[in-house]
């Protein structure tokens, strides 16, 4: 085995999903400037935040906004109504047509639900002359059955880019109490992370709804980052900065990762199959974490690769 294959570490470029800002679908005031706060993604909501009598108006509002406003660099996600409501199919068709990047399913319990929505998406793409596969999907897991089926949900479609946890519904469903420590969510969170990683997609944690408690928000973000989550859903722009700070590598972490990367480059240059630092071998997981740390730092714009900026 030569050194280049030895060090094929299978890292793909990182798409940041540290924060996904929730925007009610019938609120044009919030919709017009949702992208200026700097969240990585926006989630326009046609479901719970829209009253039944306003579903038609909200769909038209989001449809026209997405056709007109350039929300880049934010990733644009739209949460549609379930297909078993009178609004689901029309929501999916409208959002495919106006070019929403990601369609998010509410409360997903089985892989079959993903297949059903994918069927509608593909039909709409064909009807509107849009390349099949352009519209990505995200699923929210909000119940006991969804957690049990997490892996089959996460692998139900190639369109899936992430799965997310909806904690309030989940806790109501399992008859648990919401606590600050989040003990009641541990199994769901860990299951979702493992399922997402096994499927090779991202995982996004639930909202923290007390917008005045920044300390607890930071504690929660730190804890879910440690568990392996890529980011968190948020309900207020003021939650963006603290969460990004939690997810951004520190200068010390970057420096350490750079030392490991240098050792890796030296090993490749020397044709050595083993990376070592100060005479000690560097394990593959350590290498992987270091390279991922640098990718994250680059994506967060706190580190620039000299070779790339030349």
């Amino acid at each position: 085995m030569n050194s280049s294959t030895q060090f094929q570490l299978g890292l793909s470029p990182i798409k940041l999903r540290r924060t996904m800002l929730f925007v009610p679908g019938n609120n044009p005031g919030m919709m017009s400037n949702a992208h200026v706060y700097g969240s990585d993604a926006l989630m326009f909501d046609l479901e719970d935040s829209v009253a039944t009598q306003q579903k038609d108006a909200a769909r038209l509002l989001v449809y026209n906004a997405l056709k007109t406003i350039d929300y880049s660099p934010c990733e644009v996600v739209v949460r549609v109504n379930p297909l078993d409501t009178p609004f689901g199919v029309q929501d999916v068709r409208a959002m495919v047509k106006c070019g929403a990047q990601v369609i998010r399913l509410p409360k997903t319990e089985t892989a079959l639900e993903i297949n059903d929505v994918e069927y509608e998406i593909e039909k709409a793409e064909k009807d509107f002359g849009i390349p099949v596969g352009r519209t990505k999907m995200m699923a929210a897991i909000e119940g006991a059955l969804g957690v049990v089926n997490a892996y089959s949900i996460a692998t139900a479609s190639k369109r899936l880019i992430a799965i997310a946890l909806g904690a309030e519904d989940y806790c109501a469903n399992i008859k648990a109490q919401r606590t600050e420590e989040g003990t009641e969510l541990f199994l769901a969170r860990a299951t979702i992370v493992v399922a997402a990683r096994a499927a090779g997609i991202d995982c996004i944690d639930t909202v923290y709804s007390d917008t005045n408690n920044e300390e607890q928000l930071i504690r929660e973000a730190t804890a879910i980052k440690k568990l392996g989550f890529d980011g968190k859903s948020i309900i207020n722009p003021r939650q963006i900065r603290p969460i990004h700070a939690v997810f951004t590598p520190t200068p010390m972490e970057i420096e350490k990762a750079l030392r490991i990367k240098t050792a890796l480059e030296e090993a490749i240059a020397n044709g050595s199959g083993v990376v070592s630092m100060k005479g000690k071998m560097v394990d593959r997981p350590v290498l992987l974490r270091a390279l991922r740390c640098l990718e994250l730092a680059k994506a967060s714009k706190v580190y620039f690769d000299e070779e790339e900026t030349k």
Binding site: P28, S32, A57, L60, L61, A65, T68, I69
Partner: peptide
């Protein structure tokens, strides 16, 4: 915005 007026008139 224009897109909002358009959406509201359509609705």
């Amino acid at each position: 915005l224009d897109c909002t007026i358009r959406a509201r008139v359509t609705a």
